[in-house]
Design a protein around this nucleic acid. Structure first.
Lengths: 250, 250
DNA sequence: ATTTTCTGAGAGAGCGCTCGCTCGTTTTTC
DNA sequence: GAAAAACGAGCGAGCGCTCTCTCAGAAAAT
């Protein structure tokens, strides 16, 4: 089927490519000298980490399982990582770096059209999270449960993505392309729409939803919601204040 | 300030109320006889479980920490639970049961107006997740990492919520209230909007977003997106197919 | 070309420690 | 004083991590 021919995204976000960058960033703590060998083994270690952690959680994944799954010994493992938490930072750092790099470099023909720019962000974020799915799931699920430094990094990354979206929305409001009451809140609501694709990937796969279909779904929902002056028609406070007087029965 | 006066939601979803139901459901495995005592200690155990697990993960939470935090001893703990995984099922079961009960019982004056019904689901789900925030966070974050039975239960619960939403959307399309291309996909996209409130509660708290503001934000976004015939104007496949030819650089 | 030396990658048993869980004993309750 | 509840030292298993050892193959010496 020759699926692999000319698929730059899949290749640029392959485990090997990402591990090459990880090796560069962590040369001092990785004791193996030969780069080819180091990248190959690092890729197997990190691949195993992602697979096992996304199944059972990082904390529940033992170094013995990791050794077994990556075809190394306990000792061999420790020529690549100097502690288990360090393995976590390696992965988190790489996700953060790649995400930032990709999202902050929109193509020129998109920058000054808010509609196109928002569409580009949606498509790019979703496709990137598809190509790096285990990495994104790992970062999302494990970020909360580890050292303060990494935790803060995850929060910052979330804030950055949101700011990028908010900036585009503001630009669109200024140019008349969008009509939005609360830009920051709206930007916050767009993020989970992008995240759902990888957080609940299994659900969409089982249901047969294609990535193009999902991107269109999010894009259409948002352009319908933001495009025209569908103003808050007095129902606002009604909705907010209408608390059920009674609940089911609990 | 007398905040507690007449707050039925807060009371009905209090740890005590929920633990009373848990006790009923697990009478056979809880060896303490006196109900008042059992509920009180169960509440402290489960409260501690939620607090600690949401900070560091359920797996990383040890029974010694749990004993300390709930004011019991190791042995004391084991008169209430017969294993650590069982503690997880207790919590998951209770969240599932309560959610199902509440969402499947909309008030009569809402049933036959799709707009009002959707607004009711949004407000109810968000308020319930606010009142039971630690429980919802726990269920969301830990569901993936434990036994197949509980895992399936979480998937089923997600599917149920989605089905309820999809039914309302379909009803709205039939009555002309909504215009929606893909009902199932749209229903899938609404869920993460509801979940974001509790998954990222800290972010919204720090930012000063009120629950009413959030409910309005989601409600307005959706009613703008679904209400009028903002049809797919030929840009659909453009968006989907427009893959970046080149990426940032990685 | 053959032998010797050196070296970096990997192996895997074992260390100290903490985990979930048990059980004989003590305290509390009625 | 009997029954119910709580206690907490202790068990074996399994954790992250270390350390000594092996050995292929490159480099140097013959």
């Amino acid at each position: 089927m020759n699926l692999a021919r000319r698929r730059p995204w899949t290749n640029a976000f392959s485990t090997e490519a990402l591990c090459t960058r990880i090796l560069e960033r962590h040369r001092d703590s990785i004791r193996v000298q030969k780069p080819r060998l180091a990248v190959a083994n690092l890729a197997r270690i990190i691949g195993a980490t992602l697979t096992l952690s996304n199944k059972q959680g990082f904390h529940a994944t033992t170094l013995r399982q990791l050794a077994e799954a990556s075809g190394l010994s306990m000792g061999g493992l420790y020529t690549y990582i100097d502690s288990k938490p360090r393995l976590l930072s390696m992965i988190l750092d790489e996700v953060a770096a790649t995400t930032t790099e990709v999202l902050t470099a929109p193509p020129d023909d998109v920058r000054d059209d808010a509609h196109k720019h928002l569409d580009w962000i949606i498509a790019t974020h979703i496709r990137m999270s598809e190509a790096m799915q285990p990495w994104f799931v790992f970062a999302f699920m494990e970020a909360k449960s580890f050292p303060p430094a990494e935790r803060q990094r995850a929060i910052d990354m979330e804030a950055m993505t949101e700011k990028i979206i908010a900036d585009v929305l503001r630009q669109g409001v200024a140019s008349g392309a969008f009509t939005i009451d609360h830009v920051k809140l709206t930007a916050s609501l767009i993020k989970p729409l992008l995240q759902d694709w990888y957080v609940k990937r299994a659900k969409y796969r089982k249901r047969g939803t294609s990535i193009d279909g999902y991107i269109d779904g999010v894009g259409n929902l948002l352009s319908a919601a933001l495009s025209n002056g569908n103003r808050t028609n007095g129902r606002t406070s009604a909705r907010a204040r209408a608390r059920p007087k009674q609940m089911a029965h609990p």
